[in-house]
């Protein structure tokens, strides 16, 4: 236990050294070389970030408000993708008929990157929220279906037999055996799905939007405002990281039964 703590302390120490080294190199590069023409210093980025917490980027929205706009889009698209993805994944994994019909279609859709849907989404749904929801949906949906399907395929048939022997009917066996043994797979899919949704919202916003964190980056590009671009990128990274942490935490709570030891 002691050794473990020490190891953790060490790896944290080296991670911090890595980050610090980049920040120092960045600052030195900006101050003393021609890179300074292309980049703001980390401190400038940080100051701008603090400034945009209370001052608008663009017409009226502050940085947190732009983030909230993007997050809202992700939550809607991701939730729809989760519901539809889990239903289709389980149906494909448990019913031969559904598998036979949907799997080839799905395998065709699967390799299409979510940005490839942007032009189609704009033609179909215009430049409003529906188009963005559609793009985000497609990004998350594919990952969630793939993983849920894999989970539904590996359900232990013996365990279904156990449930029947104990008096469960088919519906009960489905909810008490099939679903719980898919949950870890569903979560794996949702984890990947959420991060691809977060990437997709940015792509969608960069193409057509008047608000959202993706838009702040394109707006920065149009105004030649490097600091604003960096503020956007860093905000994206931090929120992406927080989303991943949130998903991992949810998994730990919901999949407690898989954890050995205390």
């Amino acid at each position: 236990m002691k050794i473990k703590l020490k190891e953790m302390g060490n790896s944290l120490f080296f991670s911090l050294i890595g980050i610090a080294a980049i920040l120092i190199l960045w600052t030195l590069g900006v101050k003393f070389t021609s890179v300074g023409l292309l980049l703001p210093t980390p401190l400038e980025v940080l100051q701008r970030m603090a400034y945009t917490f209370s001052n608008a980027i663009g017409r009226e929205l502050t940085l947190p408000m732009h983030l909230a706009v993007s997050l809202r889009r992700v939550v809607i698209g991701f939730s729809l993708a989760s519901v539809c993805g889990v239903v289709l994944g389980i149906a494909m994994g448990r019913f031969r008929m559904v598998e036979a019909v949907c799997k080839p279609l799905f395998e065709l859709v699967r390799p299409i990157p979510s940005v490839a849907w942007i032009p189609l989404a704009i033609v179909w749904f215009g430049i409003g929220e529906t188009a963005k929801t559609f793009i985000i949906f497609m990004a998350g949906f594919v990952n969630i279906v793939v993983n849920t399907y894999a989970g539904a395929k590996q359900v232990d048939e013996n365990m279904l037999g156990v449930a029947y022997m104990l008096g469960a009917n088919e519906i009960q066996a489905f909810f008490h055996v099939v679903i719980p043994s898919c949950v870890p797979y569903i979560f794996a899919g949702m984890q990947v799905g959420l991060s691809t949704c977060w990437m997709a919202v940015l792509a969608a916003e960069m193409v057509s939007s008047t608000e959202g964190i993706g838009w702040t980056i394109t707006a920065g590009q149009e105004n030649g405002d490097m600091t604003q671009i960096f503020v956007g990128i860093i905000a994206i990274a931090v929120v992406g990281l927080l989303l991943a942490v949130l998903m991992r935490w949810a998994e730990r709570v919901l999949c407690r039964w898989r954890v050995r030891g205390k």
């Binding site: 013996n158 037999g161 156990v162 022997m165 104990l166 008096g167 469960a168 008490h176 055996v177 039964w257």
Partner: peptide
Amino acid sequence: PSPKRGMVYQTTNLFMWYTVMQNVEF
């Protein structure tokens, strides 16, 4: 299969996602 006939298996075949209590009261 019928709940009138119980079965104890070679490998335990417990519902790993349920607690001891939830397994026994299944």
